[in-house]
């Protein structure tokens, strides 16, 4: 129970940060990528502020604790391989981000004030994740059959 309440509060902090930063505003995000047009460099500062805080904070956490407060261990990705799956997926994500102006972390905080557009985006995105997961499961089963 403690874990659920704390996760909700941390989520609130995340959502507040996204809302204040301008990340949840597709017009601003698309202008950030429009270097050849109405360029708005604000998102550089979002990334800068988030990265500096996280890099410093992670160091502090990993240096001072051997395990998190409410879990047995730190769950860190162990895959080190840069492959076609990673790059292809990232390339696709960028295309979708450039088309819509929404990324997953910016869309969720916009649910309550973003009206129909953000709901359409989130519905399609969830369908995309579900579709990719079932395709992935299918291809793994076929691989196993060989």
């Amino acid at each position: 129970m403690k874990r659920i309440v704390v996760s909700g509060l941390i989520g609130a902090l995340f959502g507040l940060g996204i809302a204040i930063s301008g990340m949840a505003n597709p017009a601003k995000v698309l202008n950030f990528f429009d270097v050849a047009g109405q360029w708005d460099p604000s998102l550089l500062l979002v990334m800068g502020g988030a990265l500096a805080t996280t890099a410093f904070g992670y160091r502090l956490v990993f240096a001072s604790r051997s395990r998190p407060l409410l879990d047995a261990r730190f769950h860190l990705p162990s895959n080190r391989q840069i492959d076609g799956r990673l790059i292809g997926g990232a390339a696709l994500f960028g295309i979708g981000w450039g088309l819509s102006g929404f990324c997953p972390g910016a869309a969720i905080p916009a649910i309550g004030f973003g009206g129909v557009p953000v709901l359409v985006f989130i519905g399609a995105m969830m369908a995309g994740i579900a579709l990719a997961r079932s395709l992935d499961g299918l291809s793994r089963k076929q691989l196993k059959a060989f």
Binding site: K28, G88, L92, F93, W97, L99, C103
Partner: peptide, 30 residues
Amino acid sequence: IDYAVPVSLPVLAIGGLIVGIGVYFGAGCT
């Protein structure tokens, strides 16, 4: 909170679908 979506609903749907597939295989987003 400033908010404007200069994108049509069909493009948002297509973009959302591509984002979903991309972040799944790319194992992460921004």
